[in-house]
Simulated scan of single mutants.
Amino acid sequence: MPVSAGACTCADLFDSAPYRTVVADAEGGVRYWPQWVGQAQAEDWFAALRDGIEWQTLQRPMYERIVDVPRLLAHFELAALPAGSPLARMWAQVNATVPGAYTHAGLNLYRDGRDSVAMHNDKLHSLVPGEPIALVSLGDTRRMNLRAKDGGRACGLDLAPGSLLAMSHASQLTHEHGIPKTARPVGPRMSVVFRARPQAAR
């Protein structure tokens, strides 16, 4: 049975199908591959990116003071990546599964359960219309909350290491997503997010 654009179905995500549709829309919706790459590959990518790139701590104004963004960040222009680098290999593999005109990769490193990102949708002016967003999860498992903007039922996806989440451009109009803080003991987790940026936003 088709899932409406306002619905969110997180049950039965781990059957024999290679991916599950969490939200359906005309552009592919939100799809989740729980075992996109094997454990060894996921661990290799995590270690290479954690140790091989320069992570940044950013700050932002909040409640009349400046606070640290609760995670570390890094950004890369895909065309400038060295051939054969871990990120370039990941990009090629993502593009084989979820084809797109990707131009940039944004990385987030959640050091422990205190790191998070609030519910949001990607800024539409910084995305090429019709192009997907592809998110690779590495490190420890963290829950992503997904909520329809029209007040539909919210749900949580436990993003496993080596998993892939694809979100359509259209889904950014209908849904928000975020990584909540957790009191459970969790290890570091990394997301690598591939996006197609318009020329004016680069």
Results as ranks from 00 to 15, higher is better:
Pro2Asn: 09
Ala5Trp: 00
Gly6Asn: 07
Ala7Gly: 10
Ser16Gln: 12
Ala17Met: 09
Ala17Asn: 05
Pro18His: 02
Arg20Val: 07
Thr21Asp: 03
Ala26Gln: 06
Gly29Phe: 00
Gly29Trp: 00
Gly29Thr: 09
Tyr32Gln: 14
Gln35Ala: 13
Gln35Gly: 10
Ala40Met: 13
Gln41Gly: 06
Glu43Val: 15
Asp44Lys: 15
Phe46His: 15
Gly52Leu: 13
Leu58Met: 10
Leu58Pro: 06
Arg60Gly: 10
Pro61Phe: 00
Met62Asn: 06
Glu64Ile: 00
Arg65Trp: 01
Val67Tyr: 01
Val69Ile: 09
Val69Trp: 01
Leu73Gly: 08
Ala74Met: 08
His75Asp: 05
His75Thr: 11
Leu78Trp: 03
Ala80Asp: 07
Leu81Ile: 12
Ala83Arg: 14
Ser85Gly: 11
Ser85Thr: 10
Arg89Thr: 02
Met90Lys: 10
Met90Pro: 05
Gln93Lys: 14
Val94Lys: 02
Val94Met: 08
Val98Trp: 02
Pro99Val: 11
Thr103Asp: 04
His104Met: 14
Asp112Phe: 06
Asp112Gln: 11
Asp112His: 08
Asp115Arg: 15
Ser116Asn: 10
Met119Pro: 08
His120Gly: 13
Lys123Gly: 09
Leu124Asn: 04
His125Gln: 15
His125Met: 14
His125Leu: 14
Pro129Gly: 11
Glu131Gln: 15
Leu135Val: 14
Val136Asp: 02
Met144Trp: 04
Leu146Val: 08
Leu146Tyr: 01
Ala148Phe: 00
Lys149Asn: 09
Gly156Asp: 05
Asp158Gly: 05
Ala160Met: 14
Pro161Asp: 00
Gly162Met: 03
Ser163Pro: 10
Leu164Gln: 04
Leu164Met: 09
Glu176Ala: 12
Glu176Ile: 02
His177Gly: 13
Pro180Trp: 06
Lys181Leu: 06
Thr182Asn: 06
Thr182Lys: 13
Arg184His: 05
Val186Ser: 10
Arg189Trp: 00
Met190Ile: 12
Val192Met: 11
Val193Ser: 11
Phe194Ser: 02
Pro198Gln: 03
Arg202Asp: 02
